[in-house]
Design a protein around this nucleic acid. Structure first.
Lengths: 223, 223
DNA sequence: CTCAGTTTGTTCCCACGTTCACAAACTCTT
DNA sequence: AAGAGTTTGTGAACGTGGGAACAAACTGAG
């Protein structure tokens, strides 16, 4: 039973728990304690228990959790027990990698079309799918009932692609372009910025090695 | 100028501000208010001002911020005014895309080597670099002073690659493999899981459209 | 100089998330 | 059946982050 809304921080960790459970199942583990699962997921056991308690009472005191059963419950909560058709727009290096990424298809997501505005690329076969012109977007969305779109275009094209996606009826967008997207209410956007993550690492790395902050006026490399 | 530690949430947004400032500079904007910059970065203006106040007082009341000056200060704070040599391990589809990703090189990060354990791929030219055997890792780290490593291998290999990186002296790791990495204290790991993001979108999407699962206790969409 | 207008930096308060600690509930042994 | 040993689920304390609101500080006009 899920009487209240699940906290956002918890939702973000559910996929991690799911991965950990899958990995336990591969090792033929039938039952696990919150401590074991927490270790496998890389979190605190108290946090794990509180997270799971938001979904319901799926464990047994004194015993632990049934791995298979818990996995199903989490998958159902996320919505992975149903089929999610996905379109990917922008088949450059990254789009190419995403189309071939097994982590998508293995978790209920099904890439139904690859779109690119560049007419030179169209017809090319990537991951078993032909690249189709971007103009076919809305027809494809209608035909397959696509609700989720992935943007892997250059930053300059991202907002325009996003607008077309929204017009076509897509309500959830995963954006890999380094560009802020503005969308109407009711549409969800999640942003993955590869270089941001590196910059955050660089910040901490700098703090590790350099105790004092000198202020040389050298502009250095800024771009 | 920065007496106290900068909050983690703020650090995570600094790259976003940097992007917004770059974009403003391209439009020949010399000065901007917190309101303008916040809009460009997709955040609340109060949050932006509080974030920037953690770095120091770089604005002028009644006027706003000097775009060029603020950009330099943020870049310096993150550490982008220095050079960051990076190695990428695992040159599959994703590693290939990362090697070609312009967002890395344009921000002070310099890919010095591409490594792969598969001997069939070695010598292959990707993004102007020859793929080298993984065994050369520690020599390369020593030679170039590499502090940051990127893992783009399959999940099964990730922990082993991580261990070798730590042994070689790398202290910051960006992990794209869907696998929890355990590292000694003092080593930072950031994880980017492409399929997790999709799963989070699916959760919200499910909540938007489908009110009825086996237990219909949820009032439905509140957006 | 003074006053009106603007925008930053900061304070206060609330909501959310994390962690500790413990009662409740289960298993197993005797 | 009872007690010892486990482990979950949760209440309470604590810390972090977000947003409104305002004082401080600047510009520019008269």
């Amino acid at each position: 039973m899920s009487p209240t809304r699940i906290p956002e921080a918890t939702v973000a960790r559910l996929p991690v728990y799911l991965r950990a459970l899958n990995s336990l199942l591969e090792g033929d583990t039938r039952t696990c304690s919150s401590e074991e699962l927490a270790t496998a997921a890389g979190v605190n056991s108290a946090k794990l228990r509180k997270d799971l308690s938001h979904l319901g009472s799926y464990g047994t005191r004194g015993v632990g959790y049934d791995v298979e059963y818990l996995r199903y419950q989490i998958a159902r909560e996320i919505g992975l027990t149903q089929d999610w058709p996905v379109v990917i727009v922008g088949i450059g290096n990254l789009g190419h990698a995403l189309a071939n990424y097994s982590g998508f298809t293995s978790r209920g997501f099904r890439t139904v079309a690859l779109l690119d505005a560049d007419s030179a690329r169209q017809g090319e076969l990537v991951a078993g799918l032909k690249i189709r012109p971007f103009t076919e977007l809305s027809a494809i969305v209608r035909e397959h009932g696509v609700a989720i779109g992935v943007i892997a275009t250059p930053a300059a094209a991202a907002q325009s692609v996003c607008d077309h996606m929204v017009d076509a009826g897509i309500r959830s967008i995963l954006n890999f372009a380094p560009s802020v997207l503005t969308v109407p209410a009711g549409v969800d956007v999640r942003m993955v910025d590869l270089s941001s993550e590196l910059q955050i690492l660089a910040y901490h790395e700098q703090r590790k090695s350099a105790p004092a902050t000198p202020d040389p006026l050298d502009p250095g490399v800024v771009a």
